[in-house]
Amino acid sequence: MANETKKSVAVWQPFFFGGGAEAVALWVLEALHHEYDVTLFTLSEVDFSWLNAMYATQLSDKEITVKAQLPERLKKWAHTLISDNKIARMAFIYWTIREFKKSAYQYDVVFSAFNGLDMGRPGIQYLHWVHVIEKKFPKAQPWLKALMVWADFSHERLCENFSIANSEYTAEQVQQCYGIEADVVFPPVVTQINTLPWSEKENAFLCSGRVVKAKQTHRVINILKAVRDKGFDIKLHITGGGGGVYGRGYLKQIEALAQQNSDWIYLHQNLPYDDYLKIVSRCRYGIHYKTEPFGISVAEMLKADMIPFVRSNGGQREIVGAEHQDILFANEAEGIEKIVRVLGDEDLKMHLLQSLKQRKDLFSTERFMDEIRETVKKYFDRLEQKAAVPAQK
């Protein structure tokens, strides 16, 4: 390899379109490139200067070797196809898998930053959720079966990997779906937020993320409307775009609700990033209805010194801490009850604020990098132990 004094690590991340998975991949690269000779396998060339600005990394092609499969002239065309067509997106993913597997044995360790993967040999995989790029063969659609056969995708090889999950909740699903254990390493929160003192914040809730049916934005509105009906003068900022052409109907529903309640609901779509951060910094409370594998937007709320109200099951419970029962709810009725109680009790609010601040370091980039480095070291130690066993016989 390029540097014989370092062990080599090949990291697979199919593409960089923005989001929590990309943040994990980039901070894996940041964590490893000082100690290892790191190569990134991906679909198209990456602009590290742009990604560094988005995710607060300090990467460059001088430190990371990039193996991109797609010629630069075809990048825009491919990205359009990937955005508009699920089958095309998966076809490009499986193309990168095929090429990655061809080179897997050239490296000391292979690392999938994008979920469970057959890499052609055992390696390390970081799972954001289960069955993201594959399904058990009998349950796969015909087109997915064809792609899995094309890439010689094996669940048996996937299950030989050392697994990391983004939450205990995901780790439980990994155990149920694949029959394997996974260590937990929380993703890093990379958003740079200038928090305001509580007294300067707006008496408002933030609901962030895509405005799609799966996020249940209408239930957030139902809850906060009921809270307002009980005499609390609160506002709601909804940030995020819709779900494309297929999600347009739901977005129109939320737009109509926001217009009907325009005195207290503000729907922000396609905000410049700096404007989004200003809204995040000035909201006192957050609310998230969907059960998530992790819930990066909830972790951002925590970093912004909000009091976030979230569902009582799923990965977001691990972000705020199961001990904070005052902000965990199972359904709309309990959500209303919990929010009314907190809003009406100043001492409880201050207690929650101080207690939640203690959890912010759990999602720091420093902690994430330490745990990734420890995982890779542990993996190499296991390889050495296995190699030593035959020599002892």
Score class of each variant (00 low, 15 high):
Ala21Thr: 10
Ala391Leu: 15
Thr239Phe: 10
Ala151Pro: 04
Ala165Thr: 11
Pro122Asn: 03
Gly231Trp: 04
Gln325Ala: 14
Ile87Asn: 14
Asp37Lys: 04
Glu334Leu: 05
Glu255Lys: 14
Leu236Val: 15
Asn161Tyr: 01
Trp12Arg: 00
Glu45Phe: 15
Leu144Tyr: 02
Leu328Gly: 10
Gln176Pro: 00
Thr80Trp: 15
Phe232Ala: 06
Val184Trp: 13
Pro71Asp: 01
Gly231Phe: 07
Ile193Tyr: 01
Met350Asp: 15
Gly286Lys: 06
Tyr178Asn: 05
Ile93Pro: 00
Gln259Gly: 12
Gly247Cys: 04
Leu353Phe: 08
Val310Ala: 06
Ala204Cys: 03
Lys145Leu: 06
Glu337Cys: 07
Asp345Tyr: 04
Gly116Phe: 03
Glu160Asp: 11
Val110His: 00
Asp229Tyr: 12
Val280Gly: 10
Asp118Gln: 02
Gly344Arg: 07
Ser44Leu: 14
Lys75Cys: 06
Thr291Gln: 12
Ser163Val: 14
Glu384His: 10
Glu172Ile: 07
Phe380Gln: 00
Ser8Gln: 05
Arg248Asp: 13
His79Gln: 13
Phe232Ser: 05
Ile238Asn: 14
His34Ala: 02
Leu51Arg: 06
Val9Met: 02
Phe232Cys: 06
Leu302Val: 08
His268Gln: 08
Glu30Ala: 02
Ala151Gly: 01
Gly315Glu: 11
Asn3Trp: 02
Glu134Tyr: 07
Cys177Asp: 07
Trp143Ile: 15
Ile133Tyr: 14
Met148Ile: 03
Gly241Asp: 05
Asp183Ser: 09
Val174Trp: 10
Leu51His: 05
